[in-house]
Structure formats: C-alpha cells, structure tokens
Design a protein around this nucleic acid. Structure first.
Lengths: 336, 336
DNA sequence: TCGGTTAAGTGAAGCGGTTCAGAACATCCT
DNA sequence: AGGATGTTCTGAACCGCTTCACTTAACCGA
C-alpha cells in the first residue's frame, strides 16, 4: 500500500502551467483569476491527474467537508435507512458522512458527539437526543447542529426536523380506543434518564383523556433485547391487549415475543409501529404503522446543515413532519 | 457556529508545560520522552482541555484514521447491517468509517472508490465488487483494500473475506431439488457487466448436475425494483416453482410480488434467501435463508485493514465464511 | 499627462501537527 | 581519562493547501 507514488501536488500543477500555486488554487475554484488562466490550469491539472488533497485543504480552510451523523442506535432499521439516505444526499452535495451510533446509550451519544466535533466535522445531524440535556445546546455553540426528532432548547440548533409526536400518539391511542382496547402498553426507545420526554407527556395526557390504562416501558432497539422486554410485558398478569411501539424495530420484537408466547396478532394482541419501514408490510401480519416522508425529512435536514455550513442565512428553521397512520392487519377489535 | 473560540494547540500545551511542541507530541503518544515528562504533559494537556487536531495530524503523518466502506447498495438490509457493525468495530479501534454506497451501479462504485482513496482513507473495505475488473487490483496498489464476498485477482488486496458461494448454491439447489422443484429462478444482485460472476458459474454447474431448469436473473436490491423484477419472473409462462435469491432483500421483493399475484408461499412458490437478516424470521412465512456469522465476518475484515494500516505482516489473508442453511417455512415440497 | 481604479497574479505566512537530525548531558566500558 | 553509547529533549523542516497583503500592469477619466 501507499507505495512511493509521489502524489502530484498543487506545486506540480503550478510549475507545469507556469503560474504560482496560489493561482492554481484560485483557478481550480474558479475565482480571482482570468477565464483564460482558469482554462489553462484546469487542463494542466487534468492532464497531470491532479486531485487536491482534502486533508491539506481542510487544514488550511478549516472546513473538512464532512458531516457527522449520530443516532442513538443503528440497530434500528429506520435509523439505518436514515443514515443511508443522508449519506447519499450529502455525497450529492460533495460532502461526506461520518456515521456513528451510540449503541443505545445516551451518555455515549454525548461522548461521540464531542468526538465528532473534535474530528472537525463541519456539521452534525443528530437523530433523537434528549432535548432536556443542556449539553446539546452547548455543543451547538461550536458546530452547526441539525436535530431530528427532538427540539433543542435555546437558540442552539441551526435547524430542526421534528415529528409531530403529539398527533402520532393521539392517533395511535384513538385508533386503539376505537377498537375497544383499554389496557395498552407503550414501548419507547431508551431516552432521557429524566424520563420526561415529550412523547411520554403526550401519552399521559391522551391516556387520561381517553380513560385508558397505559403503561409506558422503555425498550431497546435491538431485536433480541426488544423481544426480551416485550416478553416481560406480555407475560405479566394484566396483559395489555394492544401495544404501541415508538419504532418498527421494537414492534418486531413484540412480534417475536408474541410468537414465543403463542399470542396471535391481531387476535390476542394488536400492535402499532412507528416509522413504517418498508419491510413492515411483509410481516405476518403486515404491521400497522405511522409513516413519514423519510426522503423529504433527510433532504430538509441535510439542506439545513449545508446551508448553515455555507454561512447562509442563519435563520433557524423548524420543519414538522406529520405522521400518517397506515392501517394494516396488526390491529383489530379487541376480543372479549 | 465556530465562534472565535481559539482552539488550544499543541504549542499552548508546550508553553504551559515548559517543553517544546515536539516533546508534547511525543509525550502524548507515549514515546521518546521520560515517564516524568509524559506525566506532566498529560496533566497540562487535560487541564487545558487539549485535543489534538485530527486534520493536522493526518496531514503531517499521512494517516487519517479513516476507513472507507463501500458497498454496492445500502438499500440492501444486510449491507446496512454490515456497515453499521463495521462502523462500530472501527470506532472501538479508534478509527472512523466513511460509508458510501454505489446505489447499485458498478461503474459508480469505481468512481466512489477512487474518491475515497483521494479522500485519504487509510484503508478500504469493499463489499461485493466485480472481481474480474482489473480496476480493483490497480486501486489496491495505492490503498489497503479488504474485499468482502469476492476475491480480487492478483496480489492486490491485503485481505479477503469470502463467502463459500459454491457451497451455498449447491445446498440451495439440492434443497430445492429434494423438494421436487425442477424449474427454478435465481435472482442475483446486479453485478459484473461481463456476467461471468463465479456465483453464476456455480449455478450453471449445479443446475446441470441436478438436471434443473434454472434461470438466472439480475435484480436490484431496492425493494420496489426487486418486486418489479420478481413480478416479471413470476408472471411469465413457465413460471418457476421456486426462487433462490442472493440476498434477503431481494427475497422480500419476491414476497411482495407473490402477494400481488396471489401466489402462496410456500404452497405455490418456494423461496430461499441469502444472508438471513434478523427480520426474515418474522415474515409471512418465515424465510428460509443462509446465515453467516456477520459479526465475525466484520471483525475479521476490520482486523485485516487495521493490521495492514499498522504496517503489520503483509501476508495476505483469506478467510472463507461457510453458509448455513436455516430451513424455515418458505420452502415446501412442490405441488403437482 | 497623471493620479486613481481595477483586474490578475504573486509571495509568504499560516493551519497544527509529526518527524528527522542533532544537541546536551549522563552513563558505561576499558 | 576519553571515546562510545544511550537517553531525553529541541529546532526546524515539512505535509499540501488557502488566503491575506501586496505588486504589476492595464485602463480610465479629466
């Protein structure tokens, strides 16, 4: 590897074109020099197969062209989709994605975010973080942050793409209520240690309004662990007749647990997911879930970081994505 | 963003500790200087909250600490898993993953790989590439490459993690043969333009041996497009009674198409996948598939790049992963 | 004709580390 | 005692690009 093939540098191009390195630098970026020189330099550069060294460029310009993407756990299928899509969009805008996941540990998420900042990423896209943690707004001081899913307090983030969780929760619970379900479990991913996530507040409020007996339980994204949690929830006395999961991945765990316990879906148990992952429709039975326009979401989020990086109008933008209940076969009227 | 917070540099630390910048550089990496000085420098550094600038370090040392991971398409669930896992392992070894996907276009894969090399990644992990394309072995001259799935010709790659596709194909076809299937479609991801992928050769040989009527068709990873291809395959005259897919994602497309066409699985159609993605077990019916030890695969692959990067024994290593047929409910005896 | 603009291009100083050659000093061996 | 050897640390030259301040030359209007 890296044999002594001397990389052609900007100086080589400068010499060959009979101009200064500075001129080459300008020419290749199409500024400051005459059309004529630009043309000539470009030709020489391509003849020599010159490609600017991104590292040197980053050091000199202070911009790396990299955007960090940090989600709580890439075990979650939806987040996998999210990062894949984001990487694609970033690349289309000549930026690279540095993708990290916190393995479900909120503390680790902080550490990694700091690391990413120190790694000199130009921007950061954070998929659900704990909005009550001041750490994030502080971090936003030193790097352009776009938050997905949760609003960051203060004037921190340069952009926010939020889910209308309140509506989602309402629709889900109303749907289950209408089907006769009264005892419902809500499985949410592990989040804030303080337990005061907005989602939970919404759940409480709606439960009260609809006079539902709702239990909120934290469940990891990992299929195996989610299954364990679901097993516990479903095996206990006073088993809920319906489960609402804040992630399709978690709902898959419920499916697995239900199978083990020989509970039929939707006969014995109704299940609702969140995210509407493409494969959810292929499950047995197809999963009722909330869908978002993920592509648009990613487009918007990436657009926000990039424009912030380019120093564009700092006006903070907030986009709210509406949930869309896809009713399929995993929910049914409660059997008595 | 990036307010005028002057980063603390190595020089600040040097001044504060009363030594030269060089000494700090050495001390922090634990070489060349006395224990005593190391200790002192470390203390000062942490007091000042000093973190070495990775970009500057990369420029000076010629090593970025980044490893590129390039797969044909992140639409494929298994590849999503692969990169997620690889990113995690790399991070554990203090390296970052630069993840790209070629969107199913082999040509694009070449372009991106070059880009990644120019981006100064220390190593490259390539998930299936066309092994007959000399481009890859040439690229291997200038960067440490580990190839997953296909062998690279020549003494190019520093490592290879191969699937024993021959065995996989044999097992799959024998399994279907034993169930009475004679007319079988094989769906493989889009690969080499020259169509001489080993997998195809194996298929041909096995088909001949077992006297099977096998049709090999190229199908994209994307669920929607895979469904389209599957629809065509299943709707034609002389419809196969079984389909073997070289990726679970593609098998999902078959499921979707079968549903549309009202073909029952496994009643009217047997389906075998490849990769055994965790959710495949939850499908209706659970998908028969080949499983690999993905975690081990990733560990090995990452280990190979890293040791090559560290200039360790250049002996090229080749590991072959054995397939493991997980027989589930998507295959059944052929109805007559 | 001449000062004032403007456009095109140059030189050199960084960016923040790493690393090589050598200085300074102590230690060892004969 | 004196050269050989070793250890610890320093100075300065990079790594390859960007960018600021400045020079040159061309052009302009009065």
């Amino acid at each position: 590897m890296s044999p002594p093939v001397k990389r052609t540098t900007i100086r080589d191009v400068a010499d060959a074109a009979g101009v200064s390195p500075a001129a080459v630098s300008y020419a290749l970026r199409g500024i400051q020099v005459s059309e004529e020189t630009q043309e000539r330099v470009r030709r020489v550069a391509s003849d020599l197969g010159y490609e600017a060294n991104p590292i040197a460029r980053a050091l000199a310009s202070g911009r790396t062209g990299m955007v960090g993407i940090l989600g709580p756990s890439l075990e979650d299928l939806w987040q996998q989709r999210l990062v894949a899509e984001a990487g694609r969009v970033l690349l289309a805008h000549e930026h690279y994605a540095l993708i990290l996941d916190a393995g479900g540990d909120p503390m680790r998420q902080r550490v990694l975010a700091t690391q990413l900042r120190d790694q000199q990423v130009d921007g950061l896209i954070l998929s659900p973080v704990d909005p009550s943690d001041a750490f994030w707004s502080e971090l936003a001081e030193s790097v352009a942050i776009v938050s997905i899913g949760d609003a960051l307090p203060g004037r921190g983030a340069v952009g926010e793409v939020l889910f209308d969780n309140r509506t989602g929760v309402r629709n889900a619970l109303e749907h289950l209520h209408a089907l006769g379900h009264r005892r419902i479990a809500v499985l949410r991913p592990p989040g804030s240690p303080t337990n005061d996530r907005p989602a939970e507040i919404y759940v409480g409020a709606e439960a009260e309004r609809l006079e539902l007996d709702v239990d909120v339980v934290s469940a990891p994204y990992e299929l195996q662990k989610a299954t364990d949690v679901a097993r516990t929830v479903l095996a206990g006395t006073g088993r809920p007749s319906a489960v609402f999961c804040f992630s399709d991945s978690i709902a898959y765990g419920v499916y697995a647990a239900a199978r083990e316990l020989e509970l039929r879906i939707p006969g014995d148990l109704s299940v609702i997911g969140y995210d509407d992952h493409p494969v959810s429709i292929l499950l047995a039975p197809p999963l009722t879930s909330f869908s978002w326009d993920t592509e648009r979401l990613v487009d918007v989020a990436v657009g926000m970081v990039l424009s912030a990086i380019d120093g564009h109008p700092r006006r903070r933008r907030r986009v709210v994505i509406e949930p869309n209940l896809r009713e399929r076969a995993s929910t049914a009227r409660r059997r008595r």
